[in-house]
Design a protein around this nucleic acid. Sequence first.
DNA 1: GGTGGGATTAGCT
DNA 2: GCTAATCCCACCA
Length: 197
Amino acid sequence: MQGEGAEFKLLPEDFYLRDAARVAPELLGKVLVHETGAGRIAGTIVEAEAYLSRDDPGCHAARGKTKRNASMFFRGGRAYVYLIYGMYHCFNVVTGREGEGEAVLIRAAAPLEGVSLMAANRGRRDPRTLCSGPGRLCRAFGIDLALNGCSLREGPLFIAGGEKPSRIAVSPRIGLNRGREKLLRFYAAGSPYISRP
DNA sequence: GGTGGGATTAGCT
DNA sequence: GCTAATCCCACCA
């Protein structure tokens, strides 16, 4: 690693072709990279939630395929981006086989590269809250609906390898009305960049 | 330091 | 019409 010139190695496709509950904890420590016109933005994923295709009322795909969630049914390795509360985007990594409807919501990242771009996108500077939350992360990374459905192995938005955190913690998912009893939120224990302890 | 409410839009019922 | 996997600020203690 040499800071701004660091090389990133893409994850193999197989990584994504598994259950969301398996992929979610393994995404911790991986690096999310967005090559924008203004420069490269990168961060280490520290918090993720799994949304399952079966028996999961909290999952957007639970009530079938719609225009909005269509990209959630793609083959694993693509992005599912949607708008929430009219003003925030949420970024998900699609997992599993085509037609399955599983994904992992990326909730928080630790800033790694392009911190000044993130701060400009967000309109504030505190690095701890730059990407600590799904809506914040998307705004900091410049992720919007234009990236919905695109491959995470071809860029401009992609995920690269990284070091697994030493301690991974599990908890119920945040903000759900239904399906909140499942322990499908995974985060790097002790990281100051997660959205909630 | 903790909390309550407003912002704002797509899609479902 | 209402809900949705949210964020931020104003206001109170």
